[in-house]
Design a protein around this nucleic acid. Structure first.
Lengths: 215, 215
DNA sequence: CGAAGAAGTGAATCACGATTCACAGCTTGT
DNA sequence: ACAAGCTGTGAATCGTGATTCACTTCTTCG
């Protein structure tokens, strides 16, 4: 039996796989999903086109993994913030929304690809899963807040979806490819503050004196 | 000069063009954009594939017109409601949001295609134009309401975008192809009422006693 | 009617990027 | 060093659906 995979080989293969995933992520972060042909990704990863298929059964699988990894990082962050039981729910929601928006604005092309750009159906499915994840994260905090009388009574699932939609749509302008190049990071602060305030207003008790934006 | 187009011929050609546009609209209303190949549309309109190209330079042009017509109808309605200067701004916004949501839920496959389904870039552009239209319609009413002290001070463009996003995202669940078949129109009333209330809460003065949903 | 020209047809072509695969080049154990 | 069997390659193939176009059919009018 003249060949058996050794640890060294296994590690090299794993490293190549990583390079491919990373190349794919870089490609959409730089020029969007539309630019991310298998060729382009392979070239960027310094492998041949066919090699991509040694690691992933299809392009859709590759990008499903790319989307999963990138989105999971964001979702983990949001979930961590919304789940922090030691703080008032409105505060958690505000911070989660703010973090989400800021991070999206900091990597606009990637965020646009993750949130809105047309992709393969299989990748779209991944996207929907994560939208549901965001919604559920917000819904959980909403439920906490309602139970604690910090928030008005509302359909938490619906309100959570609406928050996710509001964040996405309001960011779409600044994120969309057309409007990049003349981004004014200075205005981002105001945009984020207004957006967070919008969400808070929508869910807080009417009697609650809403915090001004925390400078 | 043995042939010159007569009125009769012109009318027949125009009628065929109409049939094609209508067939395309029916196709996406029934089975979504994904199902709307040029073949499928041609067959439904009782013409040959090639004939479609006697009327439209490309598939994208055909569907741009389909989207424009269908969306314009909706946008006109929303704009009419949000522009009615004789009524308080919050009332106008609530009614516009409600109308938008109800009409979407009444024709879910079409609404899904118009709002969210993956489409050609050229058609996507049309979609974005209309999104901006909705946003502007809401922004106008928001400006009126702010000026009249009926609404809190806020960035009307941003808030309008957020409203559009909230409506879209909250409707996406009920509209998406996966969740059709077991639609419960009965629940739509509650959904719409909650959604409208969410939007109103986000924009009304804190001191304002919000109206219950107008049954 | 018959010629001129337009409109209609649909099978063939094309575009385009994902996917394959026969071959080249490694890695490993004897 | 060699054979076995893996990994890497990238040009060729494939699939899909839009688009074309040579041909047929229809309309008009002298």
């Amino acid at each position: 039996m003249p060949y058996r995979q050794t640890e060294q080989t296994r590690a090299r293969i794993e490293a190549t796989r990583e390079r491919i995933v990373e190349a794919a992520r870089e490609q959409i972060a730089e020029a969007g999903y539309a630019s991310a042909s298998v060729q382009a990704v392979a070239t960027r990863a310094n492998v041949a086109t066919g090699s991509v298929y040694r690691h992933f059964p299809s392009k859709a699988d590759l990008f499903a993994e790319v989307f999963t990894r990138a989105s999971q990082r964001e979702l983990d962050l949001v979930t961590r913030v919304t789940s922090d039981g030691t703080r008032p729910a409105p505060e958690r929601i505000a911070e989660a929304a703010e973090a989400f928006a800021r991070r999206a604005l900091a990597a606009p092309t990637l965020a646009y690809a993750l949130l809105a750009e047309p992709v393969d159906p299989a990748v779209e499915a991944e996207r929907l899963t994560f939208r549901r994840g965001y919604r559920d994260a917000f819904a959980k905090a909403l439920d906490d807040g309602i139970a604690a009388n910090e928030l008005r009574e509302l359909d938490s699932q619906l309100a959570a979806a609406a928050i996710v939609g509001a964040l996405g749509e309001a960011l779409l302008g600044p994120l969309s490819p057309a409007s990049n190049g003349h981004s004014a990071p200075k205005h981002h602060d105001a945009l984020v503050a207004n957006l967070v305030q919008f969400c808070l207003n929508a869910i807080e008790e009417k009697t609650h004196v809403g915090a001004r934006s925390h400078s």
